[in-house]
Design a protein around this nucleic acid. Structure first.
Lengths: 126, 126
DNA sequence: AGTATTGTATTACACGTGTAATACATATGA
DNA sequence: TCATATGTATTACACGTGTAATACAATACT
């Protein structure tokens, strides 16, 4: 079982996606990447990075004068952790009830449904 | 399109589930219901109720001396709103990628998958 | 009628988060 | 060598949330 992953706030999550795409990166690398998508000031992003380090979600290499940062958890495991707690909180624990709602409320196109079915299919012949 | 639903915090969500199950209820009703599942003090629950009222997620009837409370949004729409923002935040926007992960990581039993497939099926013949 | 009880209203306080600014140290360029 | 730029460290501050406690008002009991 994966250990307890600290909470990652919404803004922090943005930072993580940058590091998950590529790491290690310097603070400036992260700042450049994020400033393409957000209007955060560099100091703000720096704060987020520091908080992630303090939370031990991000590691830092201080051997050079300019530090480099890298994720300490895989994106998958963080997503799974978030998904589990989300589903428990909002749907009482079952992914199924969530899916049911999505389907019933017609938020999925025929296309989507076809795709979902094909994702499920291979599992059949296990 | 459903209007903008205010943010409902984790604890507040607990309160909402009580009101969604049955409403209107007095504060004491809500308190009793929640104290079966949590160890919150009555004052705490009262605060949560008041905050929900202030946020206009819960309505209150003050015609009697003892107020009664009731939800102003359906559970479904709140769930959908949460789900959408969650999926966008964590999975880049597609329910599919979330499902893929769940399936690939073997977090679904054969049973679950069979059920999901049967939920998807009826839609086929639309 | 006076007091205890029970609801409602107001206030509290710490911690996380969003959103930085300021201070400090070191390397770099003039 | 001194000023400047650039990176890191520290500090700030408001708002939401978790978690209540205290104050106030009206009813109910003695």
């Amino acid at each position: 079982m994966s250990k307890n992953i600290p909470n990652i706030s919404e803004s922090e999550w943005e930072v993580m996606t940058v590091l998950w795409k590529e790491a290690p990166l310097t603070a400036n690398d992260v700042i450049s990447a994020l400033q393409k998508r957000t209007d955060w000031k560099s100091k703000t992003i720096r704060t987020l990075l520091d908080r992630l380090v303090k939370k031990e979600v991000v590691g830092v290499n201080k051997e050079q004068r300019v530090y480099t940062f890298f994720p300490l958890y895989e994106q998958d495991e963080c997503q799974r952790a978030e998904a589990e707690s989300f589903i428990k909180r909002i749907y009482g624990g079952t992914l199924k009830s969530m899916l049911v709602q999505f389907i019933q409320e017609d938020n999925l196109s025929e296309e989507d449904i076809k795709e979902l079915r094909s994702i499920l299919d291979p599992k059949q012949k296990k």
